[in-house]
């Protein structure tokens, strides 16, 4: 049997809200080490990679590897039936064709149970190579979300330029052009508010805002986001999930026609 109990159930709610517009169906790979998911969007331009380690659950039980194919829109609808402070348990019997979701109120006086039919998903697993990035930018996730939203009024793509001074986002379109420049923080009260640029070499890349906007829906998961860039390789946008794992998005670079 597979059973994973997540005391902070709202993490799962935020996760599924963050990916449901990008990916329709996904295979949850359940292993003794934890839960993972890898899926591309339908146009094969971006990839979602999720990891939730077993030690982030309490308890976590996985006797053998299981693949749970789940429609994320259905899952999102079901998760809306839980409260933000509910404890959420995911359970799957060995010979079952469904995943069971249990929502438990903090005082355990309310228990709801939903049985979700599993779906068969033909999912190709891609191998993500280890990459030494030219630039790694860390910033508040709310700031990332705001910049992506602001740039969308100008055009459908954004150029992100990283230098030792900071990072500059710029867009131009028919109505005009604009940019937002973030300087590296010198002194901040909280590390979560800092903007840092870890630079091997200056880099400037252009990406479709539509996808960055979808990625930025993960902002409620984590106070900070990390953007990793190298010339001619996919952008990595990473949100850490508390102390238990991460949600990563990869986006192929735009190419000059």
């Amino acid at each position: 049997m597979f059973e994973a109990r997540l005391p902070q159930g709202q993490i799962l709610k935020k996760l599924i809200e963050a990916v449901r517009e990008l990916v329709t169906d996904a295979n949850f790979e359940c292993k003794p080490s934890g839960l993972s998911l890898q899926a591309m969007d339908s146009s094969h331009v971006s990839l979602v990679s999720l990891l939730m380690r077993a030690d982030g659950f309490d308890p976590y039980q996985c006797d053998r590897n299981r693949t749970l194919g789940i429609n994320l829109r259905t899952l999102a609808s079901v998760l809306k039936c839980s409260s933000n402070d509910d404890i959420i348990t995911i359970r799957a019997e060995d010979d079952g064709d469904s995943a069971i979701l249990i929502f438990e109120s903090p005082s355990s006086d309310r228990l709801s149970e939903f049985d979700l039919k599993l779906v068969d998903i033909d999912n190709e697993q891609l191998v993500i190579p280890d990459t030494q990035y030219d630039a790694v930018v860390r910033m508040p996730s709310a700031e990332f979300q705001r910049i992506v939203r602001d740039m969308q009024i100008l055009g459908d793509s954004v150029t992100i330029a990283c230098s030792k001074d900071g990072v500059k986002f710029s867009a131009n379109g028919e109505i005009g052009s604009g940019s937002v420049r973030l300087k590296q923080s010198s002194a901040v009260d909280s590390e979560d508010d800092a903007v840092t640029v870890d630079l091997q070499q200056a880099v400037s890349l252009t990406f479709a805002l539509r996808y960055l906007s979808l990625f930025s829906k993960a902002a409620p998961l984590s106070p900070t986001v990390t953007l990793s860039f190298s010339k001619d390789v996919p952008l990595l946008v990473e949100f850490r999930i508390a102390d238990m794992g991460h949600l990563r998005f990869y986006l192929a670079p735009k190419i000059d026609e």
Partner: peptide, 14 residues
């Protein structure tokens, strides 16, 4: 003009 590249050439199949 920009073209959005596909992801697969960067990440080979398992």
């Amino acid at each position: 003009q920009w073209l959005q590249a596909q992801l697969q050439p960067f990440f080979p199949d398992e």
